[in-house]
Write a protein that binds this DNA or RNA. Sequence first.
DNA 1: GAACAGGCAACTC
DNA 2: GAGTTGCCTGTT
Length: 278
Amino acid sequence: MDIIAEDKQLKIKITDDFDPVKIFECGQCFRWNALEDGDYVGVVRSAAARVHFENGTAYIKATGGDVLLWSDYFDLETDYAGIRAGLCVDDYMRRCSQSGAGIRILRQEPWEALCSFIISQCNNIPRIKGIVERLCANFGERIEFEGREYYSFPEAEKIALLSEKDLSVIRAGYRAEYIIAAARSAVSGETDFELLDKMDAVSAKKEIMKLRGVGSKVADCFVLFGLHKLNAFPIDVWMKRAIAEHYGKSFSPGIFGDYAGLAQQYMFHYARNVRQEE
DNA sequence: GAACAGGCAACTC
DNA sequence: GAGTTGCCTGTT
């Protein structure tokens, strides 16, 4: 990918898979929203940004963050087209990966991913987004961008000091208790994201599942999206259906190898966006 | 009003 | 280990 910094914006000549709609709407993140003109606006760390996509070029205009932040966040060093080609172990996966071409796994902050996916349980995307937005608006740092207000995702340190009552404004329900416990665990060092990062996906999953409110699915989402371990394979009801239909009981994510997590994204995308249209 | 939702924990057998 | 139930909130 060619990244050129010009006129206070980054211009990325896309030479690999990169589809903003799929990237932002595939369920991996909750803080990017489409504007009327189709651009996406979101917050990463302490920077707000607008992503515009046109003629094979992505334009990123942000309040901050250098080239490194954005190339890291969008995982631009990884060859998704190449990985995708290698995933086509059967005809079904070929269809899935074709339909999902353009998805990239963002390198999100571990704490943000953990917290967001704790909130995601038994919830739909609009509501998850609402809760996360209220969390940020109430406890994050204010960022002004293009005449509008945005908020950073609050640090674990900040959430650790809150009571469940303090959190009631975000209307997370019974998940509030889990969020606070996770924040305190992160602050105390009992949950150590740097340490988890060094582990393999299976060990990291096992470790993060020690937290209350973190079961198998949330743990896999954390490992895949928060730790960027691309072999983690979250299984929700959509995936369960797809697996039952196409692979049966003996299924193991292992058949997709080191990039099973990407295969999961393609299957998920296909199940949600393509298959019902057939 | 009741059932349900992209899930988890605690409990039962 | 498989099955059941409550959980907080919002939607159908």
